[in-house]
């Protein structure tokens, strides 16, 4: 699987979702401009911010709607092939950055209406997302190269690995001893940008997920036995958003832990059985009982 295909798999749905979100919000603003302002004013009033006034005429609404139409079309056109169409991300970023920064200026120099602040934050975040996508799709960008899992993700992975395979009296091997976190990190890295980025997002989510279960600390700050208990609760949850990342990580942790000869021996799996059969298979091959099977050759020189 080529890397551009890999990163596009992740980015295509993202841009499609963005396009739909722009279309929906643009339509809502257009149809209910005052209602939108009222709703945001209500949120702002909880924070003690003054209410923004309603529109007095519709000229700026026309221009704003035109802008929403443009960003919708841009995101929609990018979505089928983000790597190929990355240049379209640039006007999208310019539009969103301008919208975000002008609102920041208005919030500072005009009045601190919540509607300004919200737009600054949301459009600013969108600039960040599109910028990240733009970098990932660069000809030599992170989405195409091998790429490494970031430091924080590595730490989180280590914490979760410790909870999976803690030291146990009388038993061989533990997560730290076999470098389990590092092995899973390398696995994610080897699967391309999608797995690496998906892994980083999932790890961050798992770190804060204990709050959802009423445990007022992040996963990485819990003692190892409590960490294991919380992960177990998440695994049993009926909520996919809690369960899926835990199940996926357990799959990788199990794979990398129990392929270690020490750990296999520790649980009573003697590889002697397999090794004897591998030897038998080699002998059969040597005797010509099986194979030889075709070997791919270099095609240089094929006509």
């Amino acid at each position: 699987m080529s890397r551009s295909n890999d990163i596009d798999t992740l980015l295509s749905p993202l841009f499609r979702v963005l396009a739909i979100a722009f279309a929906v919000t643009g339509t809502l603003f257009f149809l209910f401009p005052d209602g939108t302002i009222d709703t945001l004013n209500r949120a702002g009033s909880w924070l003690g911010l003054p209410p923004a006034p309603h529109l007095t005429h519709r000229f700026w609404l026309g221009l704003g709607t035109a802008y929403m139409a443009v960003v919708t079309v841009l995101a929609w056109r990018i979505s089928p092939a983000p790597s190929e169409r990355r240049l379209l991300m640039e006007p999208l970023m310019v539009g969103k950055a301008t919208s975000s920064l002008t609102c920041l200026l208005f919030a500072i120099f005009d009045q601190p209406f919540f509607i300004y602040i919200a737009n600054f934050v949301v459009d600013g975040a969108l600039v960040g997302i599109v910028w990240w996508a733009w970098r990932q799709t660069a000809p030599n960008g992170g989405g195409r190269g091998g790429g490494h899992l970031d430091e924080r993700s590595n730490q989180l992975l280590q914490r979760i690995a410790e909870a999976f395979l803690p030291p146990l009296d009388g038993r061989a091997g533990d997560a730290e001893g076999i470098g389990l976190g590092g092995r899973v990190a390398a696995h994610l890295e080897s699967q391309g940008a999608g797995a690496r980025i998906g892994g980083a997002v999932a790890l961050r989510w798992l770190n804060v997920a204990p709050f959802v279960l009423g445990t007022p600390r992040t996963l990485s700050r819990l003692p190892v036995d409590e960490r294991a208990m919380v992960l177990d609760r998440m695994e049993r949850s009926r909520w996919l958003i809690l369960r899926t990342p835990v199940v996926a990580l357990k799959l990788l942790l199990g794979l990398h832990a129990y392929r270690q000869p020490d750990l296999r021996a520790d649980i009573g799996v003697d590889d002697d059985w397999l090794n004897a059969r591998l030897e038998q298979a080699r002998a059969r091959r040597a005797a010509g009982e099986k194979g030889p099977f075709p070997e791919p050759q270099s095609p240089d020189g094929v006509s």
């Binding site: 146990l168 038993r171 177990d232 199990g254 750990l263 009573g268």
Partner: peptide, 23 residues
């Protein structure tokens, strides 16, 4: 065992103890 481990219930010590019964 490397493929079976994920379907064995539990985490941490509980999981290790269950895996110890692999044979």
């Amino acid at each position: 065992p490397d493929v079976q481990a994920p379907v064995i219930p539990g985490w941490g010590v509980e999981h290790r103890q269950r895996m110890a019964a692999f044979p």
